[in-house]
């Protein structure tokens, strides 16, 4: 179901969206295009956010997902980095999202990824995260970001490992919450 808030803006608001989105980076890899998030991408975001594959501390609603999606976009206003939508270059299928974000209380910037169920298992998360990681190092001077990963999220941990990241136990000890901290390598693994 498409809710009113998920319909693209019209009129001057649409022009505002276009002008804001034009400032965001557009990154391409062998198979993928990373581009500005749009409101029509929210349905996929909510599907991922509300799926059992996303491990939340408490039950979540679609409204929580909307606040989260907006929060991921806010980074572009405040830190010059935020969420990008990941699509397949050949047919523009939306595969998921990658994000550079600092959540409340987090000590540093996090590199994250989230894919739709059907896009998993094909190396897309690794390919997209690598592209955003390289962009962050080159364009905003963010090197060696971390990925916060729940102890029971083995898939994401495997992706972090494929990205050349390794566990940062010192950072884990400094963290209030119980999760793994994966530190990404300095030079992008191209």
């Amino acid at each position: 179901m498409t809710l009113p808030c998920e319909m693209p803006a019209t009129g001057p608001a649409a022009e505002m969206v276009a002008s804001l989105q034009a400032i965001l980076p557009r990154l391409t890899t062998d198979r993928l295009c990373l581009r500005a998030p749009t409101v029509t991408d929210f349905a996929a975001y909510a599907d991922i956010y509300l799926s059992p594959r996303w491990l939340h501390d408490a039950p979540q609603t679609r409204h929580d997902a909307w606040l989260d999606f907006c929060e991921m976009a806010a980074g572009w206003l405040w830190r010059g980095a935020g969420i990008l939508s990941v699509e397949l270059s050949e047919d523009r299928t939306l595969l998921g999202f990658v994000v550079l974000n600092i959540e409340y209380g987090d000590p540093e910037m996090e590199l994250g990824w989230m894919l739709t169920a059907s896009a998993e298992g094909q190396g897309y998360a690794t390919e997209a995260a690598k592209a955003l990681r390289n962009w962050a190092a080159d364009e905003i001077g963010v090197t060696q970001p971390v990925s916060y990963i729940s102890h029971d999220n083995n898939r994401s941990a495997a992706t972090a490992e494929q990205l050349g990241a390794s566990r940062d136990t010192a950072a884990e000890a400094d963290l209030d919450q119980l999760c793994q901290v994966w530190r990404h390598p300095k030079a992008g693994v191209h």
């Binding site: 929210f42 806010a74 980074g75 206003l77």
Partner: peptide, 10 residues
């Protein structure tokens, strides 16, 4: 979220 909606909704 109040801030980020600008980017998505204009």
């Amino acid at each position: 979220a109040y801030a980020g909606q600008w980017l998505l909704r204009g």
